[in-house]
Amino acid sequence: MTAVATKAPTPKNPKYQQNPKNSARDIPARIFIWIGLLAGAGFAGLPVLWMLSSSFKSNREIFEFPPRLLTESFSFDAYLAILSDPSRLRFFINSYVVAICVTILTLVVAIHAAYAFSRFTFRMKHPLKLLIISVQAVPPITVLIPYFGIIVALKMYDTYPGLIFTYMLFTLPYAIIMMTSYMNSLPRELDEAVRVDGGSSMTALWRVLVPVSVPGIVSVGVYTFMIAWNEYLFALTLTSSESMRTVPIGLQLLMGQHSFQWNEIMAMSILGSIPVLALFLFFQRFFMSGLTSGAVKN
């Protein structure tokens, strides 16, 4: 405290700011920060490390005493057991089909809606925008009961379309809000030039606006995929046959079997997390800024 206070008036202050490692008085602060950082890393990372380690063990070793991170029976057997079982592979196929379809459909629908909100003025604009924002706050459990009946009546119970349209309810509002604010940040002259030349709105949207909106579209797409990949409640309620179950439900089915194969459960958890982890690796920058500033700013 005093260090900063006495240093403050000296003209060297900016230099202190740029290169703090040179300051000997800084060492206690750095130690303090590193203790915090490492404690945090343990809190966040150790459970994940244990999941990884358990997936390479034999089931007998998972609860052995004392616990070890690496055991002599290290193997990929648990992964092979998951990947060689067609009924479990099916969970993955289902999750991929549903999440990819949801992502594509959400993007197409949201781009059109965002275009309307961004480039037109019309009487219902603000009520509709408010509706779309508030839809995000409707608890899934509230709509679940009548929803079940509606999906059955639409003959979409236990089908891909049933899940896909359902997930779009949760992905669309966010996607529309994000895409609208992205398009609002693009100059109007871009697409108005097309319309002045006699081009249609569709031309202006797809030939001009969409190509320059790719960064926004990618970030919305990543987030949409994640929501669809992770959904649990509706996947549980709107499907019944094992061949329609998605990864989260498949995990639960694995837990429900009488003898817990913990190594296989962990292997499946990791396999089921790979798509999102991969998206994170590729779009880390976006995860760290765009996603959240958009979500918070609306």
Binding site: N230, Y232, V247
Partner: peptide, 16 residues
């Protein structure tokens, strides 16, 4: 590392 818990679906978090 810190962001990791965010990347797992709730089902995975529950079984873990």
């Amino acid at each position: 590392i810190y962001v990791m818990p965010w990347l797992f679906t709730v089902a995975v978090i529950a079984v873990l």
